[in-house]
Design a protein around this nucleic acid. Structure first.
Length: 287
DNA sequence: TGATATGTTATCTT
DNA sequence: CAAGATAACATATC
């Protein structure tokens, strides 16, 4: 699923590919996934591509911003040289049989003035593209907690928020209002790295455990970005510039490894439910 | 056929 | 009233 490392990979590749380009046309194939006036961005030039938590923003030169949330199955694929043909073949098949663009799951298409294209695919239609006035961004601050790779993210900050809640640590890690960008994959992975049982309440962690967890979050997110994200089983995530999967799935220690051997102790990885979502962990290693 | 997958938000419960 | 828990969203796969 697109979490912080996947969305950051998308941001970096799109930044290289679309900054400076002028939007020539917007094709909306699924009305409810486009919010705002598409007319507002026709002729606009992209001047920036930024990320906050799992949200992407394209700053435009006309004081409008295009916000994109991929939710569970959203994909962005950039195509540099697609000459008005109806379909093209991608170098490798995209998940869910969308190996053509536009495909069965294509919802919104942006054509740039230089003839390049950006395809927004989304099997389950939870994601969206929204056009807003850029000034409205500053007012709201988007309601997210600190970026884990930013300056405000410290052991002291974690101590403060953890001490105030009796929710389980796994649930708190995924709370975007507390920490921005961690989803189910990386919540599971960082808890394994820090050797903490996901069922523990956040306020039960001692100082050395919080320190380990803080370090694990930073280390794992950095490594996942370096490897261009995780394309897990049944995951729609691909890199936008070549539609290739990420590489961090090879590093996964617990996520989607139910019944398999723990790489550390050889014990069995188990799966439980927390907040209606799967949690994977090693009961022997994670205390 | 019914359980399962997940990010976010609205709504319900404690 | 706030914190926390859960349903809803859409759709495919096993």
């Amino acid at each position: 699923m697109p979490e912080l490392p996947e969305v950051e990979t998308i941001r970096r590749q799109l930044f290289k590919n679309i900054v400076g380009k002028k939007i020539a046309e917007v094709r909306i194939l699924e009305k409810k996934q486009f919010i705002g006036e598409f007319d507002d961005i026709i002729g606009a030039q992209i001047v920036n591509v930024w990320r906050r938590a799992k949200l992407l923003g394209f700053g435009c030169d006309n004081k409008k911003t295009i916000l994109i949330h991929l939710k569970l199955t959203g994909q962005l694929v950039f195509v540099a040289d697609y000459k008005n043909a109806v379909v093209i073949k991608m170098p490798r098949p995209l998940p869910f049989g969308s190996d053509q663009l536009p495909g069965r799951t294509t919802r919104i298409i942006i054509r740039f003035a230089d003839g390049s294209w950006l395809f927004f695919n989304d099997l389950r239609k939870f994601g969206w593209v929204k056009v807003i006035k850029s000034q409205n961004l500053k007012v709201k601050n988007l309601g997210y907690g600190p970026e884990p790779l930013g300056r405000e993210f410290t052991v002291e900050y974690l101590k403060r928020i953890f001490s105030k809640t009796r929710r389980t640590i796994k649930i708190v890690l995924m709370d975007q209002k507390k920490i921005a960008g961690i989803g189910n994959i990386y919540a599971n992975e960082v808890l394994f790295e820090a050797k903490i049982d996901p069922r523990r309440t956040a306020d039960s962690l001692d100082n050395s455990e919080i320190k380990r967890l803080c370090q694990a979050i930073v280390d794992i997110l950095k490594e996942a970005i370096r490897l261009k994200g995780t394309s897990a089983a049944d995951d729609a995530y691909v890199q936008p510039n070549n539609a290739a999967p990420g590489n961090y799935q090879r590093r996964l220690q617990v996520y989607q490894r139910e019944g398999k051997e723990c790489f550390h102790c050889g014990g069995e990885i188990v799966r439980i439910k927390q907040g209606g979502r799967s949690t994977f962990f090693c009961p022997h290693c994670q205390i």
